[in-house]
Amino acid sequence: MKSIGTWLVRLLTAFTLVAGGVVFFSGAAQAATVCGNFPVPPGQVIVSETLTASCTGGQLTETIQAPYNGIVICGNSPIPSGYAITTNYTTNNCGPYQTSRLNTVSNGMQICGNSNGSIPNNYVITQENPNNVCAQWYSETINTAYNGIAICGNTPMPAGYVITANYQNAGCGIYLGGRINTVSNGMSFCGNSPIPAGWVITGNPILGACGEYLGGILSQPYNGITVCSDSPVPAGWWVSATGINSAACGMYMGEKISNS
C-alpha cells in the first residue's frame, strides 16, 4: 500500500501552476506553456501556439518542451544547437507561423535554409537547390568541414578556416562556390573570407583564384612585424608605426604592430 505522502506528492504535481504569464504542466510530456511576450527558456522549442485566456493582450500561448530527433516545431521557435530544420509546411498548430520538423545534425544531411544560424561550427553548406520539402527556403546539404572542401558562399565559416578560392558553381544556386582551407602561416586567402582571431594580413596580392575579390597573405604576428593597414590588430597588440611603404600591401600602406 502506498503511503499518504506519495499520494500527496502525485496530487500536487497534477495541478497547474500559473505565475508571471507562464503556465507549467507536469507529466510524461514534460511540456509547459509560456506567453508570447516571454522568452523561451534555453534548450526548449515551441511545438504549438494559440490564443487562450491565459495570455492577455493578444499574446499567443506557446507550448514548449525539450527537443528530440524528428520533433515538429513552430517556425518562430528557437533552434537549439545540434539541430536543424529539415521540412517546412503549414498546419493549424502554430498560429500565423509555418510548421517545421527538427532533426539532429549529421554529415551529409539535407536541411532547410531557415536554420542556417543553428548549423554547428564544424559544418559547412556544400550544395543547395529549391525543392518542395523546404517550402520557400532552399534545401541545403551540409557536411563536416575538412581542409580543401568545396563550399557554397553563404555557408557559416568554421573556426580556423579561410576562403582560398571563389568560383561559379551550379550546385550552389544563387551563391558563389568556394574552397576553404585551414589557416597556416604565410598562406594566401581571399578578401571575402573572415580572418581567424590572432592572425594578421601581411600582403594584398591579386589572385586569380579569388575572382572579384582581392587576395591576401596571412601571417602569425611577432613583435615589430609590418602588416597592411587593412589587417586586424590582434588583442594585446597595438600599432606602433604607420605610413610605411610596402609593395606587398598593394593599395594599402604598411603599419608596424608591437606587443611589448
Rank of each mutant, 00 (worst) to 15 (best):
Gly5Phe: 13
Cys74Asp: 09
Val124Phe: 06
Val47Thr: 15
Val40Glu: 10
Gly236Lys: 15
Trp7Leu: 15
Gly254Gln: 06
Trp237Pro: 02
Ser188Ile: 04
Ser77Lys: 08
Thr182Asn: 12
Thr90Cys: 06
Ser240Val: 13
Val72Met: 12
Gln30Ile: 02
Trp237Tyr: 13
Ile46Tyr: 05
Ile85His: 00
Tyr97Ala: 09
Asn122His: 14
Val233Gly: 10
Thr182Tyr: 05
Ala247Glu: 11
Ala170Lys: 12
Glu49Ile: 03
Asn192Arg: 09
Val34Ser: 10
Ala28Thr: 13
Gln127Phe: 12
Gly108Leu: 06
Asn259Ile: 04
Gly215Gln: 07
Ser81Pro: 02
Tyr213Thr: 04
Gly27Val: 12
Ser139Met: 06
Gly203Ser: 14
Asn245Asp: 12
Met253Trp: 06
Met251Tyr: 05
Val22Pro: 00
Val47Ile: 15
Thr13Leu: 13
Thr56Gln: 12
Thr63Ala: 11
Ala135Val: 03
Val45Asp: 00
Ser26Phe: 08
Asn223Tyr: 04
Gly178Asn: 14
Gly21Met: 05
Gln30Gly: 06
Leu102Val: 00
Thr141Arg: 13
Pro205Asn: 08
Ile257Asp: 04
Trp137Gly: 02
Gly82Cys: 09
Val200Met: 02
Thr242Glu: 14
Gln220Val: 05
Leu207Phe: 06
Met109Ser: 08
Ala209Ser: 15
Ser48Tyr: 01
Asn131Ala: 14
Asn107Lys: 14
Tyr222Lys: 03
Thr33Val: 04
Glu62Leu: 11
Val227Gln: 00
Pro234Cys: 04
Leu51Pro: 06
Thr242Trp: 01
Asn223Trp: 05
Gln168Val: 12
Ile151His: 10
Trp199Lys: 01
Leu102Arg: 02
Pro80Met: 07
Cys172Pro: 13
Tyr138Arg: 09
Gly198Arg: 12
Val233Leu: 11
Ile64Tyr: 02
Met109Arg: 02
Thr104Met: 13
Ile46Asn: 01
Ser106Phe: 15
Asn69Ser: 07
Glu212Val: 14
Asp230Glu: 01
Gly177Val: 00
Thr99Glu: 00
Thr16Pro: 01
Thr86Ala: 03
Thr126Asp: 04
Gly198His: 11
Pro42Arg: 08
Pro205Gln: 05
Tyr146Ile: 02
Thr242Asn: 10
Trp137Ala: 06
Gly186Lys: 11
Ser184Gln: 14
Tyr68Ile: 00
Ser219Asp: 14
Gly186Asn: 11
Gln98His: 10
Leu17His: 10
Pro120Tyr: 03
Gln136Ile: 11
Ser48His: 01
Tyr161Ile: 10
Ser115Ile: 00
Gly160Ile: 05
Ile119Lys: 00
Ser81Val: 09
Gly57His: 04
Cys74Ala: 08
Cys210Pro: 06
Ala29Tyr: 14
Asn143Met: 13
Gln127Ala: 14
Thr242Ala: 09
Gly236Thr: 12
Pro78Glu: 10
